[in-house]
């Protein structure tokens, strides 16, 4: 159907672009920008043992990790995953279960969670990635339903009542108070890895193939892009770090149950964040996550809005989709075209 290309459509257009850079990754400015962000996350709460700031940044780090991994599918390959929460929840379950029932050290349990969930999603991916566009999106909702039903009936994981962690498991990390800091630094490290991964993929041949799939899958296949393998890889890669974050998050809370682990709100927020910052960009998604976390913090403290978090998220998403499909970065790129070279 022919529709005039609106300025809004143009913004989406400008933003999902591959970025081919010549130099080795550590000589590029953007690499150091990510490193700077990670450093700020590490240093600022550590100064003066600021626990309140730490908790707020922790949530931002969770959002950044979830959204930038979602972005591999949504922003690069053009596939909406409504069920990214499954990675987070399953990762949480695997980690908590291994630590609690088998006394695995945290790092090993986290690794197992990441690898296990990635492998599982690769298998899911082979099935549902045969479906195109909206049908894939719908079946990701099905994955959530399926996994949730499984966990609720799975007795080793406590069924619908979940798993409590005994405080003893915090001992190897130097007691509960120190464990919270350890978990926080680990989370920031995973956030940093997510950003590096997004950036590395975007500047790689793999990323070019994904972006080609996102724009015209048939044309990409005809040019030789191995579309089924690339999509399954992207889907599986986008599961790894969220699973680890899920592990850390629920280890920190010392409790996991199906309704928290598979709460669709978090997947939804990840989508809102991607669109808010600018799908397909690394900077935008990180910025969007931070802003969303700030906004959410404000809403939760406000009496009127605390019940209407979903309404606000929905309204925000609708406004972005209708009027600013390029998100924040689309706006910044169009105002300051030179930033396109620096901010991926």
């Amino acid at each position: 159907m022919d529709s005039p290309i609106t300025p809004q459509a143009m913004e989406t257009v400008m933003i999902r672009r591959p970025s081919v850079r010549g130099a080795a990754i550590i000589t590029r400015p953007f690499f150091w920008l990510i490193t700077l962000v990670v450093a700020i996350f590490i240093v600022t709460p550590a100064i003066g043992n600021n626990v309140e700031l730490r908790e707020s940044l922790l949530l931002a780090a969770v959002y950044i990790t979830l959204a930038s991994n979602l972005n591999l599918m949504l922003g690069y390959a053009g596939y909406i995953n409504f069920g990214s929460i499954v990675f987070f929840g399953l990762g949480g379950y695997i980690c908590v279960w291994l630590v609690n029932s088998y006394d695995w050290p945290l790092w090993l349990a986290l690794l197992a969670a990441g690898v296990g969930v990635s492998a599982l999603s690769f298998i899911f991916g082979i099935g549902i990635l045969r479906l195109r566009g909206p049908f894939f999106a719908l079946s990701t909702i099905g994955i959530v339903e399926g996994v949730q039903a499984f966990v609720q009936n799975f007795t080793p994981w406590g069924g619908s009542s979940g798993i409590y962690i005994s405080p003893a498991v915090f001992a190897p990390l130097g007691g509960p108070a120190r464990a919270l800091w350890v978990v926080y630094f680990a989370l920031v490290a995973v956030m940093g890895l997510s950003l590096y991964l997004s950036y590395a993929i975007k500047t790689s041949k793999f990323g070019l193939g994904l972006l080609a799939i996102g724009q015209n899958e048939d044309a990409a296949a005809i040019l030789g892009v191995p579309t089924p393998r690339y999509k399954a890889l992207a889907y599986s890669a986008s599961a790894f770090l969220p699973a680890i974050v899920g592990g850390l998050y629920f280890f920190k809370g010392a409790f996991i149950q199906p309704s928290d682990a598979f709460d669709l709100t978090l997947s939804t927020e990840a989508i809102v964040i991607c669109m808010l910052g600018g799908q397909g960009t690394v900077t935008g998604v990180a910025l969007g996550a931070y802003l969303y976390e700030e906004l959410r913090g404000y809403l939760l403290t406000s009496e009127t809005f605390s019940h209407f978090q979903l309404v606000v998220a929905g309204a925000l998403l609708l406004l972005i989709v209708l009027f600013f499909p390029g998100g924040l970065m689309g706006f910044i790129y169009s105002r300051f075209p030179r930033t396109q070279r620096l901010l991926e």
Partner: peptide
């Protein structure tokens, strides 16, 4: 025509070169 509309001409052709017969690395 089936161009990747949001890519430049060079990027479009890079996709062709990357995944074609030679399976070239990006550069």
């Amino acid at each position: 025509v089936q161009p990747f509309t949001n890519m430049t001409v060079l990027e479009n052709c890079t996709v062709g070169a990357c995944f074609g017969r030679e399976n070239l690395p990006l550069m």
